[in-house]
Computed example of a mutant assay.
Amino acid sequence: MNFNPKGKTSNIFLLIASFVIVSLILWNTNSFFKKFKEEERLKMEIWATAQLELLQSSIDDDPGNLTIKVLQNNTSTPMILVNKDGSTKTNNMPAEQASDSLYIQKRIMRFKNENIPISIDQQGEHLATLYYGNSEVLTKLKYYPIALLLIIFLFGAVIFFFFKTSKASEQNKLWAGMAKETAHQIATPLSSLLGWNELLKTEKISPDITKEIEKDISRLETITERFSKIGSLPKLDEYDIVTETREAYDYLRHRSSKLIHFSFDSKIENLSVQMNKPLYNWTIENLVKNGIDAMKGKGSISIEIVPDGKYVNILVTDTGHGISKGNFQSIFNPGVTSKKRGWGLGLSLVKRIVEEYHKGKIKVLSSSKEGTIMQISLKINT
């Protein structure tokens, strides 16, 4: 969105100027087409007059060089001359089709739609009728506005997608900058918490309390590391997909409502995958939290790990209200959310982490009123 009044005024001015220029081009093209058509009509009337001179002359009489020249000069406009006895004569048309009566009749009907036929009469006696079509130049000129509009449309589409991509790139930089700044801001109080926790250990308090504080501090360190990696290419290392998935799953299971039933199942015990541990754990947590939100805090969440050829599939299933099939793709777009409070960034970040950083795939495998299954596919190390 452009909040600069000058920039908005410039955009409106450019839009109006473009519309005026295109309108002038189309108007000028249409005027030229009409003028050219009138000149071609005049040329055909002259040709018809020359044809009348030819019909008036006897076999022995010389029709005149001018008449012959006029009749021979037309080499571009297709025409059919129908004499009063029904015989036809074609000009500037395929010679092999001149004897095809069905083809001639079709062309006559077409020529009638393109131009008004010219009647050749002498002293009230009808001698012939001239049917003629548009010349090749006139036909091309007729479709020129359409081609021009198509070019303008394509040019406008290119500009639109360019600005849309540019805007998306600016938004990505903004989110990356905000994420890094958030990580930087969290780091300062986090250092203080570490110091306070060490001080508490020297006091006579239960070790279980400081241990839980250490867990939350470790959690904050993980969040800080996640945010610091947004906008930069993360380093991928070899990890066991089962261990890392279970770790993210266990963290949420212990901190979620007792009304949520968690289950974990893996068809394999150990399987190495190239991943960035903090970002992968973030992905699992996002999908599980989305499932919990969809169930409104009550239901079942299950995670299943299934090998699939060169890939391993991680299935996250919830018993929430489901997603309509038309939204299977759009839910991964930034800003799309069904929550009253939310920015709609969770699944868009998940998609980027899986597809751009880990070169994997993520999709809605299935969804109904009984629940939703989200599938992540990552390549197995060979």
Rank of each mutant, 00 (worst) to 15 (best):
L193V: 05
N65L: 13
N83F: 15
D60H: 08
S266D: 08
D265E: 11
L378Q: 04
L347S: 05
I268M: 04
P189R: 08
K258Q: 13
T165Y: 10
K8L: 12
E125S: 14
K180W: 04
Q97T: 06
I12C: 00
N30G: 10
K201H: 11
S324M: 07
V316C: 06
K201I: 11
L149P: 03
L127G: 09
D293G: 03
W47S: 07
D318I: 05
H358L: 11
T182P: 00
E39V: 08
G231E: 11
Y103T: 01
I80M: 04
L127W: 08
D85T: 08
F264N: 09
L236W: 05
E114W: 12
I152F: 11
G322K: 03
L200W: 08
L102W: 01
P189V: 13
Y357T: 01
T90H: 00
S348K: 07
F36M: 15
D250Y: 06
L378N: 06
V316W: 01
G231D: 04
I373E: 05
E96D: 02
E212H: 08
M109H: 09
R246D: 05
N11Q: 09
S377T: 05
R107D: 00
S31P: 00
L52W: 08
Q97F: 03
D100Y: 03
G326F: 08
F163T: 03
F33S: 09
S99G: 01
D216F: 06
Y251T: 06
S324P: 07
R246T: 05
G86M: 03
G231M: 07
D265W: 07
L42C: 07
T382M: 00
L138I: 09
S330D: 13
F155C: 10
K235W: 06
K69N: 06
E181R: 14
N2G: 02
N113G: 07
N276R: 05
N4G: 12
D61G: 02
V354Y: 05
S266Y: 07
N91D: 04
N74P: 07
A176V: 06
G64K: 06
Y311L: 12
G124W: 03
F155N: 01
L199Y: 11
I213V: 14
I268W: 02
D250L: 08
V364W: 01
G309H: 15
R253E: 02
S135E: 07
S368M: 11
N134K: 10
Q185H: 13
L71H: 05
V364H: 01
K140Q: 15
S23N: 15
S206K: 13
Q72Y: 10
A95L: 09
K267P: 02
S169W: 06
V82N: 02
E370N: 13
A187N: 04
W47N: 06
S228W: 10
S367L: 13
T9H: 10
T139Q: 11
V288G: 05
A168F: 04
N286K: 03
M93A: 02
W196Y: 15
L236Y: 06
L259N: 15
H184Y: 15
K43L: 13
F111V: 00
I25V: 14
E285G: 09
F19Y: 13
S232Q: 15
E356D: 14
